[in-house]
Simulated scan of single mutants.
Amino acid sequence: MAEHIAVKNFREYLRIPTVQPNVNYDSCVEFLKKMAKSLDLPCKVYEPVRNKPIVVITWVGTNPNQPTLLLNSHMDVVPVFREKWTHDPFGAEKDANGNIYARGAQDMKCVGIQYIEAIRRLKEKGVKLNRTIHMSFVPDEEIGGEDGMGAWSQTEDFKELNVGCALDEGMASPDETYVVFYAERSIWQVHIHCTGTPGHGSLLFPDTAGEKMRRVIDAFMDYRSKQKQKLESTPGLTIGDVVTVNLTRVKGGVQNNVVPPELVVGFDCRLPPSTDLEEFDKFINDTCKAAGKGVYPEFQQKQTASDITKLDNSNPWWVTFKDVTDGLGMKMKHAIFPGGTDSRFVRMMGIPAFGFSPMNKTPVLLHDHDEFLSESTFLTGLDIYVKLIPALANS
């Protein structure tokens, strides 16, 4: 029996190793041009940042002056540790149960192909849509997206698309529910520099960098413990509703018998929209001050408050989205995305965006070893988009 064309194209896309860092997107761009040609649709490639292409496939609607629907996905994937995989991470191997293994199977080449194949099916049925649809395939989301959607969203090329609403990535759900994300947490990544008295490792100097760093770590870990307790003790909360704090880097020192003049500890912090950012900034500064002289923060990222897409009757796009999922009998959860996606750049432009990847009864394996998506779940998600896309485009 011949393999479904959508599955065939999905596996071909997965075999293109657009893996960070320093991605060469040429093969990916050529694949997407081929997909556009197979749909008989125009394809444009923008490059707001050198070697960071944006591919846009457009299906013009019958009323092209209406705000358009943007179907966004990213082309890049995170690195792999091959020794941890039981399948070739870029082989797109399918096992006897129909599980397709590859980096990007969930995050998020599945969604990009589902967009393409939904449009293919709609065109084959002779469906006409009022709004124009743009399918965008962007680079570098996995390293922050600043040179991808971040740069492109500030250009006249993007503004000329007249986007009224966007769909972007969500996350798998291990139970029968589907999750739609309406906001994201702000990312704060901070390095705390702890300077102190250096000298020989056999002595007890005052005010060493190590002592100061311990005070900093204790304060951050205490904050983390309180947030963890809040999450565990409050029914209905998800990880996106609390502040996460994780110690991710420790730098400094030259050898064990030398007390260093400086140690640096790095923390990754994710702040939900409800967070008082001034208060959290004060916590960091107060922690540094209490740790001792010569302790100060250096921010790698310090995002402003996250924009929110309203999930109520004031947002007609949401009313349509909900009508479709209700009509399909889908059990939906609404959540704040725990990480960061390109949706934040779209929402910053005042455009409503839904983070949605139709993968239920599926373990969450984005960035994990042996990332996979079952063929049946992939095709079910395709069926959902065949209903959702025209409803939004004709709303």
Rank of each mutant, 00 (worst) to 15 (best):
K293I: 07
P352A: 02
V190A: 04
H87N: 12
F337H: 06
G144P: 00
K331I: 11
N360K: 13
N24E: 05
L161G: 03
S136Q: 02
E146K: 15
W318D: 02
G144R: 02
D312N: 15
M332D: 01
Q300C: 11
S202R: 00
G339H: 07
D323W: 05
I351D: 04
Y223T: 11
L392S: 06
F378Y: 05
G126S: 09
R185C: 03
R120A: 07
K282C: 14
P363L: 00
E3N: 05
A209H: 11
T248Y: 09
R270N: 02
D326V: 09
V45P: 15
V80L: 08
N256P: 11
G148Q: 03
L32M: 13
K52Y: 13
R215Q: 12
D95L: 03
D218L: 15
I187D: 08
E146D: 13
G104T: 03
P352E: 01
T132C: 08
Y385R: 06
D95Q: 00
Y101L: 05
A290K: 15
P53M: 09
N97V: 05
C165A: 13
L41V: 11
T132H: 07
T197A: 12
L373F: 06
P235R: 02
V49N: 09
A290Y: 03
H87I: 08
G253Q: 00
S233P: 05
F356S: 10
Q227V: 09
H74T: 09
G112N: 02
T155A: 10
D268Y: 00
T248A: 06
T58N: 09
Y385F: 15
A291W: 05
K226P: 01
L379V: 09
D383R: 13
M35S: 14
H200V: 02
L373K: 04
C269D: 06
M108W: 00
I187P: 09
P67C: 01
L231W: 04
P79I: 07
S274D: 07
V29E: 01
K44L: 13
F378R: 00
C43H: 10
G350M: 08
T287Y: 06
G252T: 02
N9S: 12
F205Q: 14
V254F: 10
F90T: 14
V259A: 10
K228R: 13
D218I: 12
S173F: 10
K282F: 06
W318C: 05
L388P: 10
I284A: 14
P42A: 04
N315M: 05
L161W: 00
G144Q: 01
